[in-house]
Design a protein around this nucleic acid. Structure first.
Lengths: 366, 366
DNA sequence: TACCGCAAAGAAAGCCCTTTCCCGCAGGGA
DNA sequence: TCCCTGCGGGAAAGGGCTTTCTTTGCGGTA
């Protein structure tokens, strides 16, 4: 590997001058020398050693992000928002997949700290696990004490800057929607119980049902992995145990897609016999059949906001931004079969989906 | 930030000893000192500066990957394979999204070189662009000359180690499949013409049609972005110009999903009036309706093989591994409406899909 | 002619680690 | 008793770059 001194030697200048030319220092360099340096760079195919640069420069410029899995559409969208703002500000993004392993999250915090990132963003659900939460907070606090910035997305447990999707209201909205359609026998296909995302969404849903005089007993909830196969398995278990269900609420879109697949394999018509709802409004939600009624979260916006918080030290105390959820009605929901309402209901233009925008504030369930 | 000397001072030892304790050097250290160092590390929440470590250590351990977009399922699967092998060998992966921008690809090669990666893997289609290809090869060669390893996935243009999905045979298989179903009026929804992936798949398809006495004129091909919206737009244009089509071949699954959406919006029954095929067999292909008939590529395997090539210097010349494509028959294809064959054909169990495995070797189109 | 000031280039001091080399010491063999 | 060996620990030399500080050389003024 050619080094800076190689370049300097070949150009007949000092390393200092070569450095100044190469990274456009404010110090002026004669046109003659500048040219010689640039020619040497080209001749030697010189690329600066990033580690040496990062070591020599004092200011930290990269930003670290810990997500569950970038290839999961939920996090892919968030990452898109993060990336946009980071790129605008000339920051490099280091993305780490934790695959929802708490230990790996802790390791990645250390790794990012070791890489001298300017900020760490933790995206994705928190855990109901006091021990882990404590350890994580210790690490993050230690990082903040050395000047690092931290922002979280959708996590209650850290006390700093945060962007929170309104999961609870989202659950409430979808519950209200189903009650309005006359559903009383509602089952839930939930993600891991240990995730706060699961419990938040569930709490909102339960609040809505309670408001409408329905209940949500534990045996109508099945917990599984937050993915397609988890959704299919949970739906199968649920239907076997509760054949009278008229609606299945999946707590994210992947699980809902699994639910749809399972129902199709059992030839259960959706939404005529069973309605299905998702959560998140992943892009694919409009392309499955029937197109998925779901709760939309402004994922890209969430990422963008979080990065903005992370990069702006801010003045006062911790800032928390709650972003509203909204229902997107598509074709996977219909009136409850027993409700006596008309069987046929107008269907949307394929894939478009009318959005029902609602302010989160003022409609939050009690 | 606490440094190694801080730790050493607090433990009352030299930095050398502290270093040896912290990264488990082969040199033995007394239990007493070891404990003191570890306690100092814990007290100070010390994390080694990764850049300093990387600079001081000579051996390069990270591996760089350049993909179009990790959140695109095609690349997500490949990345999974890459990651698996990398993790097994204790390598860190640096993933760069080029978003199919050639200039960005070049920049990322430099970036990765600057980060002293042990190998660079370029995943994804090459370009029909001699100037770019030349510049890329120059950069890669310069990198290889300094001891770096290079492997490519699905690119003809670089002469080193390569993993090649058999796109041409895949196109041929899907063409043969449609001909067997009696389709004669076949349109193609293609990705960008500048990508070798597009032209390879197209070439195989064309070969199959020619073998069956059909032709594929240019006006039955529409080029667009390799995504859902590109697929929808291209399908719309194609149908407007060629209303008699009985089959739409999309050159990847995302485009096929766009095609399905467009056909649904026009109330064209699939496959009764028009058959649709995809390419890649992304996970979602089985969950759209009708489930997508497509060409399966062993994406995870491709990633794993590429990483293996990249990490193993190998003995002789460049190694090229061609991985076979296979047709996955699902519900989006059926007999051509005019072909006089039975309208009803057996349907697969939802989502499963019978796979037709074929060896690539020996069946390659002329 | 002597001096001053300024601009441009170079010297050198880090940045934080790893690792080689060297030293001191204790134990064992001659 | 002396020397050699082996082991644990420290000193110090990088690794490649940035940046401050210093030097050099020039034009301009007194």
């Amino acid at each position: 590997m050619a080094t800076l001194s190689d370049v300097a030697r070949r150009a007949g200048v000092s390393p200092a001058t070569a450095s100044r030319v190469i990274n456009g220092s404010s110090k002026p360099v004669t046109e003659d020398l500048r040219e010689r340096v640039l020619r040497a760079v080209a001749d030697l195919q010189y690329v600066p050693n990033a580690h040496a640069q990062l070591l020599a420069r004092s200011h930290r410029t990269a930003v670290g992000v810990i997500v569950h899995d970038v290839s999961d559409p939920y996090f892919a969208e968030i990452t898109r928002g993060l990336q946009r703002v980071a790129t605008d500000q000339g920051r490099l993004l280091m993305i780490c997949n934790s695959y929802r392993d708490p230990d790996r999250e802790l390791e990645y915090v250390e790794l990012l700290r070791g890489h001298q990132v300017a900020a760490i963003i933790m995206a994705g659900s928190g855990y109901h696990d006091a021990t882990f939460t404590k350890r994580l907070n210790e690490k993050l606090t230690a990082y903040e004490e050395t000047g690092g910035r931290v922002a979280v997305i959708g996590r209650h447990e850290h006390s700093g800057d945060a962007v929170m999707p309104d999961n609870r209201t989202g659950g409430w909205l979808i519950g209200t929607e189903l009650c309005a359609l006359g559903h009383a026998e509602i089952g839930v296909v939930a993600g891991p119980e240990v995730l706060t995302t699961t419990t938040d969404r569930l709490a909102g849903l339960r609040a809505a049902l309670t408001e409408h005089g329905r209940s949500l007993p534990e045996h109508r909830i099945r917990y599984a992995e937050f993915d397609r196969d988890g959704g299919a398995a949970a739906t199968a278990a649920l239907l076997d145990a509760e054949p009278a269900l008229t609606a299945v609420v999946a707590l994210n879109d992947s699980m809902a897609i699994g639910a749809l697949a399972l129902l199709r394999s059992r030839s259960v018509p959706v939404p005529q016999q069973v309605s299905v709802t998702g959560f998140d409004d992943m892009p694919i939600a409009r392309d499955v059949t029937p197109a998925l009624t779901t709760v939309r979260l402004p994922l890209v916006e969430m990422g963008a906001r979080a990065m903005a918080l992370a990069l702006d030290p801010g003045a006062g105390g911790p800032r928390v931004e709650v972003l509203a959820a909204e229902v997107v009605r598509r074709d996977s929901t219909g009136p409850a079969p027993d409700a006596g309402t008309a069987r046929v209901r107008p269907t949307n233009q394929a894939g478009s989906g009318r959005r029902v925008r609602r302010a989160a504030a003022g409609r939050t369930p009690s």
